[in-house]
Every structure is written in C-alpha cells, then in structure tokens.
Computed example of a mutant assay.
Amino acid sequence: MLSGDLDVAFLSLPERKPAGIDARELATVPLVPVVSATHPFARRGRVSLADLAGEPFVDFPPGYGNREVVDRAFAAAGVVRRVALEVPDIDMGAALVRHGLGIAFLPAFAVARNPGLHVLDVYDTMLRWSMHLGTSSTRRPSSALRALLDLVDLHVIAL
C-alpha cells in the first residue's frame, strides 16, 4: 500500500497504525480462550493466564494482529506460554483445538461456527482484536476507492 501497489487492504492493527496509512476500524471482537470439549479445563470453567502457561497453544504466526494481542497480554502478565502449532486460518486453528492438539484464543464469532469447542472464562484479562480497512494517507483515492470507502462508512456507522 505504501509503495502504491495496493489501493486498499484489510489490516489487523493491535496498537498504532503505520505512518502513511489511514485506517478505518471495521470491527472489534473479543478473543476468547477455547479448549476441546474433552480438555480438563472444560470442566473447570474459570482460569487465569498463569493457569494456561503449561498448555500447548495453537496460534497464528508472529506478525498477525491477533497473535500480537495474545502475546502482549501474556507478556504483561509475566506469563510464558508455548506455541506448539502456528496456523494462518481461524477455522484451521479451531479444528486443531477441537482435536485436542492445543488451546487457542479465537475471535468469539468463530466459536459459534465451530462445534466441539469450549470457551473458558479468563478472569484476569479481556482481549479484543480489531480489523481495519487501510488506505494510503499520501495518495488521493480513485473514484472507485472513494465509492467503496463511502459504502464502508455507511455500513460501519449502521452497526
């Protein structure tokens, strides 16, 4: 986008937007910890981040916004965790958790469409993940891009 190759992109920005980018927030959703229905934590319900430290995690690769949100929460709590599997796809992560290969923090919307997952209540943190629509702040948008941005603005306001 900064090089001029892209006019618009979906971005996951955990904190600050990069220089040269305008970002419209599209949605912010909770990231919830999930385990398989047979995991011992499924019976327990409430846990802390420290309780999760010894578990293998299914997570997204470094650089993904949702991964950064989770990494920062564990670092802020002084808790070290082990990422056993990295996947670039929410549904793949859910499937690996469902089959007992680890636990994950997934967007809340993914849980409803992936049966066999149990949501834990982490009582010492609340994680949120945001998606943005990014455009160049240094280039004038084309009329097609402007029309898209107008539609996005109308839709997001209506939410």
Rank of each mutant, 00 (worst) to 15 (best):
A75D: 13
D89A: 09
R113T: 13
M92S: 13
V119G: 02
A94D: 00
G116Y: 06
A112Y: 05
A77R: 07
P107W: 02
V97I: 09
A108L: 13
A108N: 03
D121W: 11
A73C: 11
A77T: 10
V119H: 01
A73M: 09
H99L: 15
N114T: 05
A110L: 08
A76D: 15
D89Y: 06
L117H: 03
A94K: 00
V80S: 15
A112V: 07
H99F: 14
V111P: 00
I90R: 00
Y123T: 13
P88W: 02
L85W: 07
A77H: 10
R82Y: 11
F74K: 05
A84L: 12
A77D: 07
F105G: 01
G100Y: 08
A110V: 06
P88E: 11
D121Q: 13
N114L: 06
V97F: 02
D124C: 10
V87E: 07
V87G: 04
P115L: 06
F109T: 06
P88V: 09
L96F: 14
A75K: 12
N114I: 03
I103P: 00
V119L: 07
A76S: 14
V111A: 05
L96T: 03
M92D: 12
R113L: 05
H99R: 15
L117A: 04
P115Y: 06
F74A: 07
V83Q: 07
V79Q: 04
P107Y: 02
V122A: 07
L106A: 03
A112G: 12
R72F: 10
A76Q: 15
H99W: 12
V119I: 14
Y123C: 13
E86Y: 10
D121H: 14
H99Q: 15
F109P: 05
M92F: 11
A84E: 14
V122R: 03
V79R: 03
Y123M: 13
D89R: 06
A94R: 00
L96M: 15
A104Q: 02
A84R: 13
R72W: 10
A104D: 03
A94Y: 00
G100R: 04
A73S: 11
R113P: 02
F109A: 10
V97N: 00
D121T: 14
A94S: 06
V79M: 08
G78C: 09
E86F: 11
V70D: 01
